[in-house]
Design a protein around this nucleic acid. Structure first.
Lengths: 206, 206
DNA sequence: TAGCATGCTAAACAAATGTTCAGCGCTTAG
DNA sequence: CTAAGCGCTGAACATTTGTTTAGCATGCTA
């Protein structure tokens, strides 16, 4: 996650901000707290980033560029992209979750890109027969991406459910991914009654 | 969502706080802003709730009690419970999402309760044959609940993906739920290759 | 009517916050 | 050697923040 120039004070400030913003939320963290963690003066933070909001934007851009541009082959599909996200450092994950909740423009772009990529990938798989066909491919892609991001958003609660400090611990990751793949492969419902019930509702509504 | 006594200033303050906290995040909202929206003086907010944090706790307790205690028959399953959540007013949804992200104790309790209820429900269905069996029922229940809550967390992005202002609009809700039920019924993967790949990884790791 | 609780407010306070500014020390080009 | 540029800081400023205090008005009770 670190490049060569990351020993500079500017980079230390950025990393400290990502960590603290992710931990506490942007507005619970003061410029002074960031400066203290980065080992610099509060004034230097503003010197480099103009304002606290400028720092926030710089964090958004930096982090999401990393997530977006990791250059994995598209063939691995979006499940692999989620993997690369979960592999990202914990502070980055927390920051990302807040960016999604706060509806930051960068996060929105990332989400939209993920939906588009998933729709392509799922459509490709459907043509080749290893993905189920869908009545509404765009909606399915949106649901799919939402579910991929769910563990990022609810990380703390999932960790508790698995009895670990961090979901990234090997055992918990294996259990979670196994359960998810199980659903993605076999579904949850054993028959069509819920689907039929939905169809009835749809008919009633129009 | 409102009971009879909800015309009191105290209730107006609480509702204003839930709305603003959900919209902006707790720390971006000042006591003065809440007071202004409720049409009272800032001092009254503290008079009733002791402190801003007291107000926040009161909001947590009030809202999550509503979500938890709605008295729906358990037979409808957790999909119905999600429905009742999505039917809740938009400010409550936003507030809930932040409560989950901030890992508030009340939200944690709610999450744990939902996992436990889902595990019972899914296990019951598996016995009766209308739910697929699972190799790890607890993990599946956790995944299931996470996926139920995901649209609450990513509401803004999903709305954009469906081209609507609010996902609660009838058309968008129908498309989303249809896609979700589709996956829950037929899965996404048409064959077992991903499941097999996971099994290989598991074997490699131990 | 007198006393008292209740719901509420205006005004002020101390602390914290984002931001600015003048200037320090160090490196480097002229 | 000098001067300029760069990274960086300490101290201060204006504003906003949560909170407190003293007190107003209203209505109930004795």
């Amino acid at each position: 996650m670190r490049s060569e120039s990351d020993l500079t004070a500017r980079a230390r400030i950025r990393d400290a901000a990502i960590d603290l913003f992710g931990r506490e939320g942007v507005n619970r963290v003061s410029v002074r707290a960031i400066a203290a963690r980065a080992g610099v003066s509060p004034a230097l933070v503003l010197h480099h980033f103009g304002s606290k909001d400028g720092l926030r934007k710089a964090c958004d851009a930096y982090l999401l560029e990393i997530l977006r541009g990791d250059g994995r082959p598209a063939d691995l599909g979006d499940t692999a992209r989620l993997g690369s996200m979960l592999e990202a450092a914990a502070p980055a994950r927390r920051y990302l979750a807040r960016a999604f909740l706060d509806d930051s423009p960068e996060a929105g772009t990332l989400f939209d890109e993920m939906v588009a990529a998933s729709e392509r990938w799922l459509g490709h798989g459907a043509e080749e027969g290893w993905i189920q066909p869908s009545e509404d491919p765009h909606a399915r892609a949106a649901v799919y991406v939402t579910w991929l991001l769910a563990p990022v958003m609810l990380h703390a609660h999932l960790s508790r459910a698995f009895g670990v400090d961090d979901l990234a611990e090997t055992g918990a990751t294996l259990r979670f991914s196994r359960a998810a793949i199980e659903i993605f492969t076999r579904g949850v419902f054993a028959d069509d009654r819920v689907l039929d019930a939905w169809n009835t509702v749809r008919k009633d509504l129009g």
